[in-house]
Design a protein around this nucleic acid. Structure first.
Lengths: 207, 207, 207, 207
DNA sequence: TATGAATGAGTGTTCATTCAT
DNA sequence: TATGAATGAACACTCATTCAT
């Protein structure tokens, strides 16, 4: 009499386990065996639910990007010229909550996107979604000094990248530099907000 | 008559090949076989020059960090409160030149550092070197409002991370967003300088 | 509302599908999954109807041999010393019709019988049935020059084997050698009849 | 201290082992592990010498066909209108010797060729080589009643197929029908020669 | 110094088969 | 009668590493 897992959410457990292992070892460094162990399923079940390792990755990314895009779109006015106050508040909003919940997945996407061979890094979809939302707002996109390229670069390199990096490095940073988590968060937020805001101000001064 | 492998620099060719492959596939995703092919040497020669795959990685990183540290130290006062002018010039200086020459290695280190399991990301050595140099300058470190934590976070998340990210994403960015390389460089520089400077200004206003 | 699988003949559809897949990939090369797909039933239904893969094969072979034997027996005098005329006519008779209808199964049996490890090739049952029928006819078997071994070898290697081979190769032969089906059939029939007849004639001259 | 096999002919041992196992279990039914065991090498060595299972098969077939073709070509006038005497003698000649030595490989090729999906059965190369050699002989090919299609069908279905079948079935036949090997060989030879000759005679009578 | 051959411990994946319902 | 989910035992193939020369 073999005990069956009988949990209809085996598929989800597998996906969660995959995220965890991928985040720790990177995609290539992860072993199906280990994901199976983490999910408490036989590895053959992984192949019942997914075609192969790649498909697990794709499903994970696809679902994330889909949900991310939805959140961005539903937030509408979220990303333009936030001030420190708004920024701080936003840490409790849907967007940041979602991002915080998916740190590991973001890490995976970040790592994958950094590979040289990747000519269409997944991470770009993140800025794209932000900019698309922005451009669907005529007030912004029709303004005389709107510059798509500048917006993309600005949002990505002074906004998205520092934020996601912070999420990824947070734990080891606190550990390695012996900082206090609360203070560290506050400091980062202040610094990044200042820097990101500065870009926004300058950007709007262009004629 | 066997074609000689140009013996003296076989080791170097292997290292260069390793950098290339690691950058494309990440450390775990790279195969010794492929590195050997890229370096045009038999697989076994790699094991003549290096103990194992890990050692290749370590040699690569060690040499890079060593050279990096030297450059930083020899530049002395390079990184504090630069203005746009200095920043622009610096693109031609030793530091940026060195960084530009080692994009692939930086990519490798960046990727490796992003793994969750890495509690001492190699990339931290980069800020550390900067801060150490800074702190060896009593004029700066003894100033009444000097705050090491803030300096670290500021330099890392508004300086190092955006810069290295730009290096890593540059090519695919231009390709994906259909931008012009020159303009893209200029735009990034302007934006990042503005943002990074803003942090420096604010930082120095703290009492 | 689930589409019913047309219950009563699911078993037959499975068997037909099995024949098709076995014929294409050989028994070992066939996958239950693929048979299920071909039969448009879930994999598990196959195990409802058959104990395992081997049993499907056995059922298929058993049914074929049974029906074959019946036809042979009911034809009685079919195989001895046919002349060209009889042979040609026989192409429309039960025997050849049955064989033509079961080309795929014959192919499967032929392939299986060719394996070295098989010491009791199924295909032998085909000559056996012919000879048994013959021997049950005292007029033939008691004739002074009747030689069972010679009959077996003769019927098998100049009769059964060429005929079954032709059935198996027919399609690809026409395709590969760019022949016309009708002519090809006629040619083969003429040639094979001549050869087979020659054996019969010579055989009966033995004293 | 691990004992290395150090046999430069490991590759050959692998090929021979593959022939043996393929012949017993068919290609799909064979396990690399088993071939490795038979060849007395670790299975990884098989992948050092061959890309994969398919390549082993291809190498085997390619080498066989090449050698076969050479023999056929060097025999020149071997296959046309042989009489019983010639046929008998030929059993000791290069051709038959070669065939007898490669029974297992022939079995493998025969089996593979019988699969329905194979649109260009390897076995056809055997008749092709015979016919090509024949056609390179102007005396034959220019004769007024030479008919390529008839030659192909005739040689294949009354010559090649019975002969190869006999090779494949020989052992189990003797066993199953309880015959004596010598007598069996003689009987088959007499019967097949008669039948094949008959086709040749008739063929040459066509105007 | 250099290398072709060899090897063992994996590693992703497959597959016949079974279970619960 | 029927089926989606599950499973373990293989299986083909990989890969870092080592050996002998």
């Amino acid at each position: 009499m073999v005990t069956r897992k009988n949990t209809p959410d085996a598929r989800n457990r597998i996906l969660q386990a995959a995220v965890k292992i991928f985040a720790e070892k990177s995609f290539e460094g992860s072993r199906i065996e280990e994901i199976a162990k983490e999910a408490n399923v036989p590895k053959s079940l992984i192949y019942y639910h997914f075609k192969n390792k790649d498909e697990m990755f794709e499903v994970l990314v696809h679902d994330f990007i889909k949900e991310y895009t939805n959140i961005i779109k539903s937030q509408g006015s979220h990303s333009h010229k936030p001030n420190a106050e708004e920024m701080k508040n936003s840490l409790q909003n849907d967007y940041t909550e979602f991002i915080a919940k998916n740190t590991d997945l973001i890490r995976i996407i970040f790592i994958d996107s950094l590979k040289k061979s990747t000519d269409k890094p997944i991470i770009y979809k993140i800025v794209e979604a932000m900019i698309e939302t922005e451009e669907s707002n005529p007030q912004i996109s029709k303004s005389h000094n709107y510059n798509r390229d500048e917006r993309l670069i600005g949002e990505f390199f002074t906004g998205v990248v520092p934020l996601l990096s912070y999420l990824c490095f947070q734990d080891s940073w606190i550990n390695y530099f012996n900082m206090n988590k609360e203070e560290c968060d506050t400091l980062f937020l202040k610094i990044m907000t200042t820097a990101h805001e500065a870009y926004h101000k300058q950007s709007s001064q262009n004629t």
